[in-house]
Amino acid sequence: MRLAFDLLDLVDDYWVTCEIRMADQGADGPLPADALWAGYRRRREAERDAGPVTYSLWVDWFEDRSTAATAFAQVLGRDLERLRDGAAPALLRRGRRVLDCSGPVPWPVKEEAYEAAARLPALHGALFKTVPASFHDFHGDVRPEAALRLLSGLELAPDTRHLTELRHVLAAGHLNHYRSPRAWEAAVRAAS
């Protein structure tokens, strides 16, 4: 594990994360969970953003319904009690980065983390980014009523781009862009 994450740090390429996941899911897997998820957490906390780690969480772990709950709990969910005012900058950075790519995580899995993050103005931007991702991502999962409550508690500028459209589709009860392909277009027209 150490060698794999060192290689990832060196080359900063998504294929390394693919190899890690294949090793975890392969015949010799699973990998030691503590080491696997500690590696992901550390790279979400680092000052330098490791884009391949974000992409890996999103498409390899969060889009897969069989791994989404475990992966989300390991990289953020288990630390919710520490996610509060005065939290270490590294934890807030990890929270922001995990929220940014959590659109595909099933809503019941991420809802408690979203509610905890909503209490922290430093994470409001990341939350706003993830709610539309939860709607627009092919594998995204949003619960309209809960998402509207969440949005109403965020400190956002009234002219925040796409806020009106997002509220419109959620108020109409739409669960996903791909289930309601014309809903966003209608919301854009209504906001104009």
Rank of each mutant, 00 (worst) to 15 (best):
L3K: 13
F5T: 04
D6Q: 15
Y14N: 01
V16Y: 02
E19K: 02
R21Q: 11
R21K: 15
A23T: 13
A23S: 11
P30I: 13
P32S: 14
D34G: 14
L36H: 02
L36Y: 06
L36K: 01
W37M: 09
Y40S: 10
Y40F: 15
R42I: 09
E47Y: 06
R48P: 06
G51F: 08
Y55M: 12
S56G: 14
L57S: 04
D60G: 07
W61G: 03
W61L: 09
E63R: 04
D64I: 02
A68D: 08
A71W: 00
A71E: 04
F72N: 05
R78C: 06
D79S: 04
G86N: 12
A87L: 01
A88E: 15
P89K: 07
A90C: 12
L92N: 05
R93E: 13
R93D: 08
R93G: 04
R96D: 10
R97G: 00
D100P: 00
C101I: 10
G103K: 01
G103T: 04
P104E: 06
P108D: 05
E111T: 01
E111L: 04
Y114M: 15
Y114V: 07
Y114I: 09
E115Y: 04
A116M: 06
R119I: 05
L120F: 00
P121Q: 01
P121W: 00
L123T: 03
H124I: 00
A126F: 06
F128E: 00
T130P: 02
P132Y: 05
D137N: 09
F138A: 15
H139T: 08
E145Y: 08
L148V: 12
R149C: 09
R149G: 14
E155F: 09
A157Q: 13
P158S: 03
E165K: 02
L166S: 11
R167M: 08
V169D: 01
V169S: 00
V169E: 01
A171H: 05
A172Y: 10
G173M: 03
G173R: 06
L175M: 11
L175H: 04
L175F: 06
Y178H: 15
W184H: 12
V188Q: 02
R189M: 10
R189C: 09
A190Y: 00
